[in-house]
Structure formats: structure tokens, C-alpha cells
Write a protein that binds this DNA or RNA. Structure first.
Lengths: 217, 217
DNA sequence: TGATTTTTATACCGTCTCGCATAATATAAA
DNA sequence: TTTATATTATGCGAGACGGTATAAAAATCA
């Protein structure tokens, strides 16, 4: 029931001498552990006991720190977005040819979808496909996720057109939505257990279709 | 607790004078009602009481007719495939230009994903995204679903190449996987509540990308 | 009519579920 | 030391859960 603290990394920032009994957990790592469990079994099939075991916090502590199960799910989803949009932003910030940018983008996504031993897929996709989508607040978050991705991909293709890598006649919206569709497909197939090599082949095929095959001089 | 019988249609085929008390339900319609509920809330969040209420069968009858909840889910999934692959087969049988074939294919899919009032998405996608994917038998069914769709789409693009609608250099596997990815994306966005008009625009954009824009003579 | 068969209906069992009430524990402040 | 505060730990309680045992009901067969 005690959280294993990371060896060495002794929460260096701001030890403000809180007043009562000290916490036996770090909220951040607990949230990460809750997220990992939700990604495995989804909202409905994950019990508070499961979450308690996974985080090393007992139920009252969980409740006190994060609220009820629904709130914890929402926080986990926000954490998911924060964690993994970071990696994607790197790919967007770098000045890369569109083909290479997309290749890296899908590669980073596969890292997220295939963490460690077991395949997990995309948490947004899991949420949409669950009954949680009936919750207006959760639905709004998911729609924002869709929209953000479309916008980011749209920017990629627009700058590719500006750089002359794609013809000016390119349909940005169509390219973006096919590129995001490919991402969702990778997430699903990853979770279904299809090996990474095959997923990379799928990604490459999609890139060829989006940008034209290889570099034709 | 009694199933409403369809007015008029009085189960005309084969009334073989069964021996005991007659059933108060028709297994086929009950399975359809169970499927509808599973499509709404998924496996874990759907209780046997919910299923009992939806089918009009009490729990022991449900159990006797379909086995436990897992078996009922599997039967519902098979029913889903049977019901909706039929409509797709029509589109594949007809002798159509590839663009029109794809347009009708996505149109039929949207009928499935947006039944009546509430959006539902794709049951295969829901199953992959749930914890049910951990069940080997269910996982095998889902993988077969992926594979069947890839094969069917592959056939579409191959015949399009044979008919000269697409260049012989077309990458059949890449076209198929992007076409199926588009389908999954439509399923997700449909379930998230995006209106049909927008989904049709997405489908059209994907078709343009797959087959080249419009009919260039 | 009465016996047999098949299904429905009710009720129950043990387990799990979520959320919280209460008590014990560990720290800082006085 | 004592007091105040913040957390952990235990465990309770009402209800939901999946599954099944048992009894009542409705049909056919003899």
C-alpha cells in the first residue's frame, strides 16, 4: 500500500513544510498509474479498488486527492493529452520536410500506443468508443482533441504547400482528415495486437498517398 | 416484461408445435435488442438487468437462450457483422466506378453508424477500444473483421486498376488501408456526435485522395 | 382428465461496487 | 509537551452485480 518512490529523484522542488501527516504518495505519479490502468481497461471496467491497488493509495485518499471516479478519469485524460502532445509538438516545431515530419509523427504515436509490453492504443479513441461519450463534459474534451489534431495537421500541410513540397491545389482539409484517420487506424490496430512493423508499413503507405510516392525530383 | 410482437408478421415459417410452454420472445428480435444496447453502452457498462429490460426477457430466460453475458456479447457481435456486411456486399456486387462504389460504401456505413436518433459508431471499433479485447476469442473475431474489410477494399481497388480507372502502379495495400482508416475515423467521429453532413465531406475528401479528384477526362 | 415438458417468474446467494464515517498516525506549530 | 492539522488505515453500509435455484404457468401428449 506504499508507493515506491523513484530512486534518487527526491522531489527537489519546493518542500514547503506542510503541516500534518505527510503524504505517502506523489499525486503526479499516482495520476500516471491511474491513467495507465484506465488505458488498459477503460472507465466502466476499472473499479476504485483496482485504482487503489494501482496507485498505492487507499480509497479515501484517492477520493480526497482526485474526487470520484469520473473526475479521476477526466484528470487522467487531461494528463494523457499533456504528456503526449508534448512529444508531438517537438515534431511540429522541427523544420522538416512534410514526409519526414509525418513519419516522425506516426512514430511518436506508435510509442504512445505500444507502451512497454502490452498494446494500449489511444485514450481518446477508447473514450469515444465507451459509454463515457454520453457525458457532455467528456464529449467536449474529446471533440477538442479531434479538433486540435486536425488543426495541427492542417498547419503541417499548409506549410508544406508554402514550401512548395505540395501543389498549391492541395486540399488541406482532406489531407488533414486522412492523416488523422490514419492515426486512429494505427491506434485501433495497435490495440488489437498487430505488430509494430506492420503498423509502420501502413503509416508509410499513407504518407506516400498524402505526399506523393517518395521524392520524385 | 413481454416483448411487443410486430403487428401482423406472425412468425409464418415452420410452427412445429413445440412441446412445453411457448416462448414469450423471438430469439432474433431479442438478440437485436441486446445488440442495440451493447452498441450504446459497451460490454462492461451494460448490466444483465439492462439487457433483461431491453429484450423483455427475464434473466434466467436470457441465460438459457444465449448463455452468460460474454456469450451474449459475442453473439451480438456476430449478429452485427451479419446484419451490416450484407449492405456492404450489395455495394461490392454492383458494377460501379470506383469513386461511386466508395461513395456508396461510406454512405451505407454512415447509415449503420447513425441509426435513428442517437449516434452509435462501429461495434468493432467499440470492442477493440474496450477491455473485451483482452479476451482471445473476441480479439480473434475483431482481427478477422479488420482483415475481411481490408480484403474487400483490396478487391475494389484491384478491379478498379483492371478497369483502367486507376494506374497500374497503384499501391493496393496502401489504398485499402487508407480507405479502411477513413471508415474507422467516420465511425469515431459519428459516435462523438459530428453531424452527417461533415462526415460526408470527410468521406468525399478521402475518395478524392484515393482515386484522384473528380473525373478528369 | 392427468402426466410431461418447456418456459416464465420470483427470489435468493455471495460478491463486488462506490462513497464515506471513523479512528489511528505522523508531522508542524505553540 | 501539548495542540492543531493533514493524512493514512480500517471498515461499514446500502445497493448493484452476475448467476442460479426453485416454484408457478402454459402448452402438448396420452
Amino acid at each position: 500500500m506504499v508507493q515506491k518512490k523513484k530512486a534518487g529523484a527526491e522531489a527537489p522542488v519546493a518542500a514547503p513544510k506542510r503541516r500534518g501527516r505527510p503524504r505517502a504518495y506523489e499525486p503526479d505519479v499516482a495520476l500516471g498509474q491511474a491513467l495507465a490502468l484506465f488505458r488498459k481497461t477503460g472507465f466502466a471496467a476499472t473499479s476504485l479498488d483496482d485504482l487503489s491497488a494501482a496507485t498505492g493509495m487507499n480509497r479515501p485518499s484517492l477520493y480526497g486527492a482526485f474526487g470520484d471516479k469520473r473526475e479521476l478519469y477526466i484528470r487522467s485524460y487531461q494528463r494523457y493529452r499533456e504528456d503526449y502532445s508534448g512529444a508531438a509538438v517537438e515534431v511540429f516545431k522541427a523544420d522538416l520536410p512534410i514526409r519526414e515530419r509525418l513519419r516522425r509523427f506516426y512514430d511518436v504515436a506508435l510509442d504512445v500506443y505500444l507502451p512497454g509490453d502490452a498494446p494500449r492504443g489511444c485514450f481518446t479513441v477508447m473514450t469515444v468508443a465507451s459509454d463515457a461519450i454520453a457525458d457532455p463534459e467528456i464529449r467536449a474534451m474529446v471533440l477538442e482533441g479531434f479538433s486540435d489534431l486536425d488543426k495541427a495537421l492542417g498547419w503541417c500541410f499548409r506549410t508544406a504547400v508554402a514550401k512548395g513540397e505540395l501543389p498549391a491545389s492541395a486540399d488541406i482539409a482532406a489531407l488533414s482528415s486522412v492523416a488523422s484517420a490514419t492515426l486512429y487506424s494505427l491506434a485501433l490496430r495497435a490495440r488489437a495486437g498487430i505488430p509494430r512493423k506492420q503498423l509502420e508499413t501502413i503509416a508509410k503507405g499513407a504518407i506516400d498517398l498524402l505526399c506523393g510516392p517518395a521524392k520524385a525530383p
